[in-house]
Amino acid sequence: MKKVVLLDYGSGNIRSGERALQRVGADVTVTADFDAAMNADGLLVPGVGAFEACMTGLKAVRGDVIVDRRLTGGRPVLGICVGMQILFARGIEHGVETEGCDQWPGTVERLQPETGEPVPHMGWNTIDVPSGSKLFEGIDKERFYFVHSYGVRAWELANTRASVTPAVTWTTYGGDRFVAAVENGPLSATQFHPEKSGDAGAALLENWVRSL
Rank of each mutant, 00 (worst) to 15 (best):
G47T: 09
G47I: 09
A50Q: 08
E52D: 14
A53R: 14
G57C: 05
V61I: 15
V61H: 10
R62Y: 09
R62N: 15
G63K: 03
V67D: 03
D68Q: 15
D68M: 10
R69F: 00
T72I: 12
G74D: 13
R75E: 14
R75A: 12
P76L: 05
P76I: 11
V77M: 08
L78G: 05
C81E: 01
G83W: 12
Q85L: 11
I86M: 13
L87P: 00
L87W: 01
F88T: 11
I92H: 03
E93D: 11
E93S: 11
G95N: 09
V96G: 07
E97Y: 01
E99I: 13
E99M: 13
G100R: 02
D102A: 15
D102I: 01
Q103D: 06
Q103C: 15
Q103T: 08
Q103P: 00
P105E: 06
P105F: 13
G106E: 01
V108W: 01
V108H: 01
L111T: 10
Q112C: 02
P113F: 08
P113C: 10
E117C: 07
V119Q: 04
P120T: 09
P120W: 05
M122L: 15
G123A: 08
N125S: 08
N125L: 02
T126G: 14
D128V: 05
V129Q: 03
V129L: 02
S131Q: 10
G132D: 06
G138M: 07
D140V: 13
R143P: 00
Y145L: 14
F146A: 09
F146G: 05
V147C: 09
S149M: 04
S149V: 08
R153S: 15
A154R: 15
A154I: 05
L157K: 00
S163Y: 02
V164K: 02
